[in-house]
Design a protein around this nucleic acid. Structure first.
Lengths: 205, 205, 205, 205
DNA sequence: TATGAATGAGCATTCATTCAT
DNA sequence: AATGAATGAATGCTCATTCAT
């Protein structure tokens, strides 16, 4: 968020960070259980371990909590995705490793991803743009990994679309769990999706 | 909805149907604009063309409106998907036609699909199960079309997963429009996704 | 208030009138006791005899209550002032009678006048303009009565200023009661102020 | 204020004085802009140049700030009025000079006078009495000047009432500015009011 | 059947005041 | 003396739901 700084009346930056962490942790739990709209600011404050008055020393509006939560989720996903990309392999192997890591990550963060999908619309335009840019960045990371494996008949534009496909396939493991997780184990799911991807990219199985 | 019947105090079935149609139409418009939580029952009644008192003759809780809306969306998608499947072609051709039709449909119903994704969590367990069953049915329809084109190395389980992939790729055209619709026209999007699908299914381009 | 109509969600005009009367009566009592800011909307509703929800069916914001109260006060003053002017006397006599009536009126409405003086600043610009116009109208009424008694050396501009003087002298009987009402009875106060006025206008005592 | 001393926990009298001056200056500015109720203690502290904690070292309740502000206004008016009275003229001339000075003063202090009129009711009884006594003192000063010009047919009681009239006419220049300052310049206003006063007191023009 | 006035629990947000440092 | 983080009671306002007509 651009004017991150102005959001809090508290001067001690470290304290702000600490309280925000408490807040995000508490709010995340509640949002998972009942969604943003059904969670009250009082509940958030209580779950975070401080009073409603204190909560409002660190935010201006309830919506700010949502922003901090969504932002934290994105950061978490991104940092873990980066880790996976730091291990350098040969292009095809790298794609497999990164995709696997991403799918495993999405499995672990199912609830958080659901929050993003269902509540993001409650953010204001500015926060939304900010957050969507983070998503674009992550897709770009995936895209670059794909580009390294691109066969001659596919372009970087294809890489972009395929990155989106993988991205959404990772998310769908969580938000379609009622359908997918009855049919597949995570391992099976990953294997099959990777197989389809390899066919598409003409990578030998 | 299982106890569809109990929902309304009104006896005249036709009237009930008429009022529900009005209600769904009005509510859909409002949900598209501001989501379920931000829409009030008063607004729904007004948009539907009757009073708040009358609205409550046809529902018991605000949530019922959401159910009717989501149900109507599913029915709409399903019936249009059926139409597309009624035209019989050779298996591979059929898959292409049905997928194309589905993607075009998802393009037209972007807003409605967004409602489903974002508000479904507000349904109670019973309604949710009912609605998810409809989604399963539709995935099954797609799955069957895929099965007819399945190469030897893929199983019906793969068909199921691929059906899910297509299903979500259709939806993602709408809910990731901020990313996809800047890069692709609908036609391009469909062509590319079909190409990847063909590679996966070993259908010659 | 210009868009008086839009202020209420209730359709029955008569009921609106009735409820507003209740509301104004209750609010006036509370404002006299503790002022606008110290009075809560809940107290207003209770004093008016209905629930907080009902109160908000008849207003949009707390400030609207203040407007209705101030408006009612002005209307009351104006209508009683009109009555006094309807009795036709000779010019000088008329001025005396009207001024007397006005002072008596101000004595009776001390509390209400205090509300006007102390709370009017809480009205928004539009309401304030509307209300000040009413005050101008009343001053004009007084001015016209004075004009009929004007000696040669005074102009209509003087009449306007003298009208303002009388107007404020009437109000000051209430808001400076802690000083004036210890020294003078109302009768004495009126007599003396009239005497000074007669000297100024060269009316023989 | 009677227990002026008890109000602050700070021992150093000079410091107390300095802080109060800062506080009054800042609060006055804010009260002019938005009134007492709409100004928060935080804003007052900030405008005064210290922290909210420090503010509360020099007051006990928010209301105390109002008292200090009103008290300061009264002192300012009184001291300037005294200055004007120190220049000794002949009685009639003196009255004119003092009244002129008072009107000019009221013109300069319009905003402050408005604060007094509109917020004084928020003071507690004790502070109110204290403050009203100051107003009485000032009226007395004016009264004495009038007494020196009194014609035979008017008593000291008349002098008191006429002092009140002048007093309020000075204030009304500010609080009825929306009406008066469109019709008159300050000079015109003063001239006319003085003329009426002279007629009343039988002072030759 | 239809209406819409009434209700009040519930919510986000504010702000005077305190107190440990 | 000064600071500013913490508190929570208080408040304006909303809105799903009911029910008398």
């Amino acid at each position: 968020m651009p004017e991150n700084e102005k959001l809090s009346a508290i001067k001690d930056r470290e304290l702000v960070e600490k309280r925000r962490t408490q807040m995000v942790k508490g709010a995340m739990k509640l949002f998972k259980e009942k969604g943003f709209h059904r969670t009250t600011t009082r509940e958030i404050a209580k779950e975070a371990g401080f009073s409603i008055g204190t909560l409002y020393e660190y935010i201006r509006k309830k919506e700010d909590v949502l922003f901090f939560v969504v932002d934290a989720i994105y950061d978490q996903v991104r940092s873990r995705l980066r880790e996976a990309m730091d291990l350098q392999y040969a292009p095809a192997e790298n794609l497999v490793k990164v995709t696997e890591a991403y799918f495993i990550l999405m499995d672990e963060m199912q609830e958080e991803v659901l929050i993003m999908y269902q509540e993001v619309k409650s953010l204001n335009k500015e926060s939304l743009d900010y957050v969507l840019q983070k998503e674009r960045d992550m897709v770009d990371m995936l895209k670059n990994v794909i580009i390294d494996c691109l066969p001659q008949n596919l372009s970087t534009t294809d890489a972009e679309l395929l990155a989106n496909n993988i991205f959404v396939q990772g998310q769908m493991w969580g938000f379609r769990r009622w359908m997918l997780q009855k049919q597949f184990t995570l391992k099976e799911y990953i294997e099959r999706q990777l197989t389809y991807l390899k066919y598409t990219l003409h990578i030998p199985i």
